[in-house]
Design a protein around this nucleic acid. Structure first.
Lengths: 232, 232
DNA sequence: ACCTGAACACCGTTCAAGT
DNA sequence: ACCTGAACACCGTTCAAGT
């Protein structure tokens, strides 16, 4: 297990992100990434042990874009802020997202975001025994929503709602019929995301019984990244 | 756009599922699936237009394992039942799951499950304007939880909680410290899943104001599949 | 109607070698 | 210390042909 080089890692990750942005996640290959910065595919193996590791690092690189909440926020604003940040990062890099539920995210940034969540739930007065579960539920809802929105599960293909209802093999769909008017309405995803987060935070609030705990001042979530000249 | 053959589709899907079960999702290739039933890779293109289409069909095949709720259930039991069914299917085929959030699921089964959800929410007395969002939220939580559980996001790699806290580059983690006792406890995922579903259904119940609507008797969700002899 | 064979343009990764 | 070149064992898919 050789030691990995560090020097050009950021440059390589940027190249990978460019490939994803321009040609999609499946276009990312050791060959395509290497080519973009004038290297042989094999050169990348000095920096990452495998393609998997490279992709994990790409995901970590994205999460570093998450901004910490502004100082002086209450627990609820902290949670709202972080949810919106995650969604914003996701919308900036839609094609990379499928990685997030497929690969375990163990970068230091994830840990620090989780820590902010824990602190906020403590500050909300949630009993400690309930906090890990509520933190996971919150994360699941935020990530699940964002992923569904960005990668097609909500879209349900190209069929409009009416067409979907009339699909062959579907048979009788009394629920769809009763809700036809609602289902044909276009969806405001921004509003839906806000409503979901809000409702979950109500749920959190209802769980709080204990005495509240003060929130620490937030600090930057990631080290400032080294600057890299791009050769495009 | 040629018409696709039907005859041996079930046989091919079974072969694909066997490959996934034995060697994982990445081992599924036109070559490996074809080989398992004594065909040339090219023969599959008579039944599926591409590997993508084959994988979509595999996902559809899984969803057909979902059992409809027993007759005479109240709306709440219907929703609980369906959540547990989805989780059970997921646990039976863990490696196939990543497909579910990556590919839009438009099989007739999805439609019929959605329809049961709509009917249950109507029966619960939720105002129609709220139902599509709540249905999506429910789906997101169930699928998100199951996926996280099965494909590693909750696992967070091989590090135990204590080891994770001590990771290099993590810095100060006051939230983790305050919750150390809780975080070191092993998690009962069954209980956590039940608690999440329960809490969401409470949330649904709090949304119900209108007069309730009777539930129709549930019917089978999928046609019984044609029998296929396996040649192993 | 259903399937095969050869070919094309790709993959990730190993190993030994080059400066 | 950092990178290259050739090679291996794979991919999905097209096209023309075979029975």
């Amino acid at each position: 297990m050789r030691k990995l080089k560090e020097s050009r890692r950021p440059e390589i990750l940027d190249a990978a992100l460019q490939v994803v942005a321009e040609r999609g996640l499946e276009a990312v290959s050791m060959r395509s990434v290497a080519q973009r910065i004038g290297l042989t595919p094999m050169a990348l193996y000095g920096y990452f042990r495998s393609k998997e590791e490279l992709l994990d690092a790409v995901l970590g690189r994205l999460l570093e874009e998450i901004q910490p909440p502004p100082p002086g926020c209450g627990w609820r604003s902290v949670l709202v802020h972080l949810s919106y940040e995650v969604r914003a990062v996701a919308q900036r890099h839609p094609s990379v997202l499928p990685l997030i539920l497929t690969r375990p995210a163990v970068s230091p940034v994830v840990l620090r975001v989780n820590d902010l969540l824990y602190q906020a739930l403590l500050a909300a007065g949630v009993p400690p025994a309930e906090i890990p579960r509520l933190e996971r539920l919150l994360g699941t809802v935020v990530i699940g929503h964002v992923l569904s929105e960005v990668s097609g599960r909500f879209g349900a293909g190209t069929l409009d709602p009416a067409g979907r209802r009339a699909q062959p093999g579907a048979g009788e769909l009394p629920g769809h019929e009763a809700l036809a008017a609602e289902l044909d309405r276009p969806v405001d995803w921004d509003a839906e995301f806000r409503a979901n987060v809000d409702e979950l935070l109500d749920l959190v609030e209802r769980r709080s019984v204990a005495e509240r705990r003060p929130l620490a001042e937030p600090r930057p979530l990631a080290e400032p990244r080294p600057l890299v000249e791009r050769r495009t």
